[in-house]
Amino acid sequence: MMILMLFFNLLLSLVGANGMLEPWFESKGLGDADQVLAYFAVSKLGEPPVDGITDTNPEGLTAAFGKWGPAVAARLQAGGLSCKVLEKEPFQKQMLEKLIWISAFMLVGALHPGATVGVVEKDFRFEVISLIGELASAAAAEKGIVFEVGIENRLLAYARAVSHFPTAVKEFKWRNGWFYSISEKAIAQGKPDPCPLHTKWLKELNIVQ
């Protein structure tokens, strides 16, 4: 059990941060690097991990990709956690969904100081759904993919599963910054901002000028 706990904490230190890592991987020549999308949490060293299971995804959301994906999945499953092994495109879609989740919920929460993820899901649902739709559309166009139907419901369900989490816009470069770069690129080309709500709220919080 101790070995498994050390593995969980090491894995969280490597992949626990939510963010768009693809540009960094590509800059290092690691475009096909094995990856794990961790939907579980360890509150502190020694505590058992809590699985990322929601009412829309009772099979669990954690996913692994690449050569070592099956080995990682087996170790997580041995520790009582779910983990599916995906091919690159399905994995990329799920990674983007989590990026949209963290970017949308943290930004809407920041607009309402003190709001937890659960409060955003319950009291500011219209705002966060609007932002999810905007970010999903931009991400789909940027990556040339089509998300599965029901993305809003899936992300709201995950928010309910981690309703106690606080909200704050952090790690801008790796999260909201990826979407803002899409906006900047479009504007520089004389095109409309594909994420106007996102840009507006970032400016309201003085995160961008």
Rank of each mutant, 00 (worst) to 15 (best):
residue 63 A to S: 15
residue 63 A to V: 10
residue 63 A to D: 02
residue 64 A to G: 11
residue 64 A to I: 03
residue 66 G to W: 04
residue 66 G to Y: 06
residue 66 G to I: 08
residue 69 G to D: 04
residue 70 P to G: 06
residue 71 A to T: 13
residue 73 A to K: 01
residue 74 A to I: 01
residue 75 R to F: 01
residue 76 L to K: 03
residue 78 A to D: 10
residue 79 G to D: 07
residue 79 G to H: 03
residue 79 G to F: 02
residue 79 G to V: 01
residue 79 G to W: 04
residue 80 G to V: 06
residue 81 L to I: 02
residue 81 L to S: 02
residue 83 C to N: 07
residue 84 K to Q: 14
residue 85 V to C: 10
residue 88 K to N: 06
residue 88 K to Q: 11
residue 89 E to Q: 15
residue 91 F to P: 03
residue 91 F to T: 05
residue 92 Q to C: 03
residue 96 L to S: 08
residue 97 E to W: 00
residue 97 E to Q: 14
residue 97 E to C: 12
residue 98 K to L: 03
residue 98 K to A: 04
residue 101 W to K: 04
residue 102 I to S: 10
residue 103 S to L: 05
residue 104 A to K: 02
residue 105 F to W: 09
residue 108 V to N: 01
residue 110 A to M: 08
residue 111 L to P: 01
residue 111 L to F: 01
residue 114 G to D: 05
residue 114 G to K: 12
residue 114 G to T: 09
residue 116 T to Y: 00
residue 116 T to M: 01
residue 116 T to E: 01
residue 118 G to S: 09
residue 119 V to L: 00
residue 120 V to L: 09
residue 121 E to N: 13
residue 122 K to Q: 14
residue 122 K to A: 13
residue 124 F to K: 07
residue 124 F to Y: 15
residue 126 F to Q: 13
residue 128 V to F: 00
residue 128 V to K: 01
residue 129 I to D: 08
residue 129 I to T: 12
residue 129 I to Q: 11
residue 129 I to Y: 00
residue 130 S to F: 00
residue 131 L to R: 02
residue 134 E to S: 05
residue 134 E to A: 05
residue 134 E to I: 05
residue 137 S to V: 06
residue 138 A to S: 10
residue 138 A to F: 02
residue 139 A to I: 05
residue 142 E to S: 12
residue 143 K to Y: 14
residue 143 K to C: 10
residue 144 G to N: 06
residue 144 G to D: 07
residue 144 G to V: 05
residue 145 I to A: 07
residue 147 F to E: 08
residue 148 E to L: 08
residue 148 E to T: 14
residue 150 G to S: 07
residue 151 I to G: 02
residue 151 I to T: 15
residue 152 E to P: 09
residue 152 E to M: 06
residue 153 N to L: 03
residue 153 N to C: 03
residue 154 R to E: 08
residue 154 R to T: 03
residue 154 R to Q: 12
residue 155 L to G: 05
residue 155 L to Y: 04
residue 155 L to S: 03
residue 157 A to N: 08
residue 158 Y to C: 00
residue 161 A to V: 03
residue 164 H to Q: 12
residue 167 T to V: 07
residue 168 A to K: 15
residue 168 A to H: 12
residue 168 A to I: 05
residue 170 K to P: 00
residue 170 K to L: 13
residue 170 K to F: 09
residue 171 E to M: 13
residue 171 E to P: 00
residue 172 F to L: 13
residue 172 F to H: 11
residue 172 F to Q: 07
residue 173 K to L: 11
residue 173 K to E: 14
residue 174 W to Q: 15
residue 174 W to H: 14
residue 176 N to L: 06
residue 176 N to G: 15
residue 176 N to D: 10
residue 177 G to L: 07
residue 179 F to Q: 03
residue 179 F to A: 05
residue 179 F to E: 01
residue 179 F to W: 06
residue 180 Y to C: 02
residue 183 S to G: 09
residue 187 I to F: 03
residue 187 I to Y: 04
residue 187 I to T: 14
residue 189 Q to V: 11
residue 190 G to C: 10
residue 190 G to T: 13
residue 193 D to I: 13
residue 194 P to G: 06
residue 194 P to Y: 09
residue 195 C to Y: 00
residue 196 P to D: 09
residue 196 P to Y: 11
residue 197 L to I: 15
residue 197 L to P: 02
residue 197 L to K: 12
residue 197 L to R: 14
residue 199 T to W: 00
residue 199 T to P: 06
residue 200 K to Q: 15
residue 200 K to Y: 09
residue 203 K to C: 09
residue 204 E to V: 15
residue 204 E to A: 14
residue 204 E to H: 12
